[in-house]
Write a protein that binds this DNA or RNA. Structure first.
Lengths: 205, 205, 205, 205
DNA sequence: TATGAATGAGTCTTCATTCAT
DNA sequence: GATGAATGAAGACTCATTCAT
């Protein structure tokens, strides 16, 4: 029993080691440049060992994508969870959280929203991640704080917008950006204020 | 003469054929999966023939990128060119034009802003493309129509935003989007209205 | 242990097999005609296997060159090592030894001095090989046995000379040569006697 | 007639142009690196044109080799032609001429004696070139000036020797040689003096 | 369980040579 | 005679994956 348990733990540990290193390489080099032999070398195991844990490169990749979505979902779960007096402020807060998560965890964000290959088949993984945001937006709509009543429209407007900043910050770090914090705040303020009724805006945060 | 002319035309035609097919394959498969042999096969020429027109894969790719930027520049030439009574309306107009270009020419947009692969050297190609937009934004700032006086901040805010919609529309076509036109209009209105002083907004466009 | 040892031995054996076959092909076909695929075929392994032992064709070639120089150095170690009553006789003895090495190990000699192809970087490999010969010549000069006092001049004269015979014997075996031993002896005698003062020559060896 | 003649002259001129450029490239780059397309480009004709004058790369190469031998033979024709009072001095003179020719026309020399690929089949081309030298040596032998009576032995000794200097000067220009003239003179003096009877040497030239 | 040697299929690229014009 | 587009065959090298140990 003890032996078996230890074995399982070791197996799990190795699996994690592979996943972590693989994630880093996938992000650094891209899917195609990623190289099973290099991965093996970097974790100091033989190539064959990786195949004891993952059927092949594609499966390894998918595992990492799933992890990223899970990580994302877990962090975004709170989105619109709390009921608040000021849903707009809450929304902005959530958005800052979202962008912040992406910028701090570019690997996860890339896997979740930016990497293309290989083509996904199953159901959209974006949708669920989305629900929190939609909930948060709905609060605002239901409180009559937005010009529009179309929750999906507002949600997608916001998502597109903040995905824009997030992905560009990740993808084009060498562009001569204005200070990141300032830009992010400005984007969030602009889009939310733009959606909000005029009489509801008085510099919230 | 006639012979020579015909030859040149044929050569040009083949070059175009290669570029067009290559563009399609690059977009379909990505830079790494793109394959000179397959390209050759798809245009029914031998691999060597491609090398009569392009030195190598990277150059072929860069040619397509350049084409895309040229195409973009040509379509965006008007950006902020006209001096108008209503700079905000002009800006919105331009933005609609920008997104429209991306959505209608997804391949060009991909090559210009979304494909990662081979590291560019030379000067940033984004910057020049950017100038028109910045000019358009400056008009608004100089007319005192925006809350902020920071032209770069406003420009980047807007660019990040509309790049967000544009790229998502291109990259995630299977997502259950609200009607595209509506979304685009909403994003543009939201972000520009969000940047504009309150007393200047009365549903323009 | 036994397993690991056997593996290492097998690995070493394969490395040797590759080196030996490669050396033969390099000599037979020249650097450019040498072909990794053919080498692989001739040793009954796949091309990839060779790359498990050598990074690329150039490295494989350099390894053989190094082997040859090592072989040469090992055989020429004694050159001018012994202090003798008769430095001229010792020199002639060494020269005979040198030519003999080249003729008996034509491949080594080719790799060391006759093959042109890939431009070496690093420091000249000839120089060190040369030192023994120079030492041997210096003995003669210092003993006042040569007409000239210029050690480098004498050394290079001798080297050029014996390289002449050696390389021709290797490169033009089908030429109607006089008996090889006779020719070699004559060349050595002629050049050394020609350098020596008249009063010191009385048929030594 | 005039037209035909002009045509033939033009054809001959082009043939020469090709040969000259080709020789330069062959020597610069070696047989394998030599490239028919580059040759065509360098003479400003199309690749096909070369094939109107030479069947293929190998034939082109052989033509150049033949030219080189002819050039060499022509220059070496005088070798031992004049009957002189001092055959040894004449021999030395000829040898200086030989080395000089090689060093000044490294291309010819390489083609004649140093390039390997592709293997020759026909009768040895060296032998004829050799005759002048042998004649010159025979004079010395017949005048009783050499220790040996074996004309072939003496000839080959001398040839091997001076080929040694010549080829090394051509092939290893980056070696830290003593001044070339000095070395060549020394080699010639040494080997001829070494072959000559003691009582015949008194600083000749 | 872990190894790591080995492979086969594939990738970019080059080049002598041909042939319709 | 001259062109130059086109090709077929080849060569260096890579890499996911397998399998005997």
């Amino acid at each position: 029993m003890s032996t078996q348990t230890r074995r399982e733990q070791e197996k799990e540990a190795l699996r994690s080691l592979i996943l972590d290193k693989a994630r880093a390489i996938f992000v650094r080099d891209g899917y195609d440049q990623f190289n099973m032999r290099r991965l093996a070398a970097e974790i100091d195991y033989s190539p064959g060992t990786i195949y004891l844990h993952f059927a092949n490169k594609a499966e390894l990749f998918q595992c990492i994508v799933s992890e990223s979505f899970a990580h994302l979902a877990q962090h975004l779960a709170k989105f619109g969870a709390e009921s608040t007096r000021d849903p707009v402020a809450a929304l902005k807060h959530s958005l800052r959280y979202y962008v912040d998560f992406g910028v701090r965890n570019p690997n996860d964000y890339r896997f979740a929203f930016m990497m293309e290959r290989p083509p996904e088949n199953g159901p959209s993984r974006i949708d669920p991640t989305f629900d929190g945001l939609r909930r948060s937006v709905r609060r605002c709509v239901e409180a009559g704080l937005f010009k529009t009543n179309d929750v999906d429209l507002a949600t997608q407007t916001i998502w597109a917008t903040i995905h824009g900043v997030t992905s560009l910050q990740i993808q084009k770090p060498s562009f001569p950006w204005v200070p990141q914090k300032k830009l992010i705040a400005q984007v969030i303020d602009a889009v939310v204020d733009g959606l909000a009724r005029d009489d509801d805006k008085k510099g919230n945060g």
